[in-house]
């Protein structure tokens, strides 16, 4: 702190004036602020998380195991994994392609394109589900055509996948665009002058440079896809064992007053959320080591 003392010019008329004290708050204030913050976070974050695990294990490990391994629960887990997998793969391809097109080329309408990519963030989850019902529902624009051809989108897996893909649409793109913008095209240009083909440039130059950002986006996309409730709830039809994802299965169990089972399945999701946070922290540390600026997670929900 002696450094600061030297830099601060002390007004000689104010004897006994300690400049370092004027640069922070009194210890009492600091203590109160920290305590209040921890109390707030404890009340809103830690206690709800604790209640999930506590309720899940309330009736013992056996009841927990039964709830998680029950047939409908397993099929919900399968559907969630499938939906999440498709969403992550599609949106990863889209994220990489859109970031490449937007950050490596100049073309008219670029800003409009970026705004359109953000659109799904501005839409309430329930409305995200609604738009697909309007298209593919029984009375939707393509409803009759689908019924005539014996195809089912709404109240079936395709609808759930579509709604989830919509909800998680911008995640990876939003992560990669600022990152690749900042890195600039020079390394790719260098690769090209050295004789590399487009795919060689992508695999050998671009991908290693964006890997942490990409992984970060994938993890956030994955978490959201796994836990999406509102949009999926609109298009699913809640058919047990068929069109229930894990969050929907939690809802059904809860509404049947089967609290232990509801919280058991919920605890799996909560555990995955904690894993997400750990993976996020891990990637942030690595990216920081490599001096890569990742846009923070809240940017993921930013509205234009």
């Amino acid at each position: 702190m002696s450094n600061e003392n030297q830099e601060v010019i002390i007004n000689p008329r104010q004897s006994g004036y300690d400049p370092t004290r004027a640069l922070t708050e009194p210890p009492m204030v600091r203590f109160i602020l920290i305590a209040l913050s921890l109390l707030f976070l404890g009340l809103f974050l830690f206690v709800p998380l604790a209640v999930v695990f506590a309720t899940a294990l309330e009736k013992g490990i056996q009841a927990y195991g039964e709830a998680v391994l029950e047939r409908d629960a397993l099929s919900a887990i399968r559907l969630t994994l499938l939906t999440t997998f498709i969403s992550v793969v599609l949106n990863t391809l889209f994220g990489v392609a859109s970031a490449w097109a937007i950050t490596r080329f100049q073309f008219p309408g670029k800003n409009i394109l970026i705004t359109l990519i953000d659109l799904p963030f501005t839409v309430s989850p329930v409305v995200s589900g609604l738009v697909f019902v309007l298209l593919f529902g029984l009375q939707g624009y393509f409803g009759h055509w689908l019924a005539d051809h014996n195809l089912k989108v709404i109240f079936a897996t395709p609808g759930i996948v579509l709604a989830t893909v919509f909800i998680t649409f911008p995640f990876i793109s939003r992560e990669l665009i600022p990152l690749m913008q900042e890195q600039g095209p020079e390394e790719e240009e260098a690769g090209m002058v050295l004789g590399a083909s487009g795919w060689q440039i992508f695999w050998k130059v671009t991908l290693p440079n964006i890997k942490w950002g990409l992984l970060y986006g994938i993890i956030l996309c994955n978490a959201r896809a796994m836990g999406e409730f509102g949009a999926v709830s609109v298009v699913s039809g809640h058919i047990r064992g068929l069109t229930n994802t894990m969050p929907l299965h939690v809802e059904i169990l809860y509404n049947e007053y089967n609290f232990t089972a509801a919280f058991a399945v919920a605890s799996l999701l909560a555990f995955l959320a904690l894993l997400t946070l750990v993976a996020k922290a891990f990637i942030e540390t690595h990216a920081q080591d490599e001096k890569i600026a990742l846009p923070p997670a809240h940017e993921q929900s930013r509205t234009p």
């Binding site: 020079e186 390394e187 240009e189 260098a190 690769g191 090209m192 002058v193 004789g195 590399a196 083909s197 050998k204 130059v205 290693p208 440079n209 490599e290």
Partner: peptide
């Protein structure tokens, strides 16, 4: 002709070395 085929050497102002 694409830059890939021109067989020129190019040195960038900020080096553009492959970091990884």
């Amino acid at each position: 002709v694409s830059a890939k085929e021109r067989n020129v050497g190019f040195v960038f102002q900020h080096y553009a070395l492959f970091k990884h």
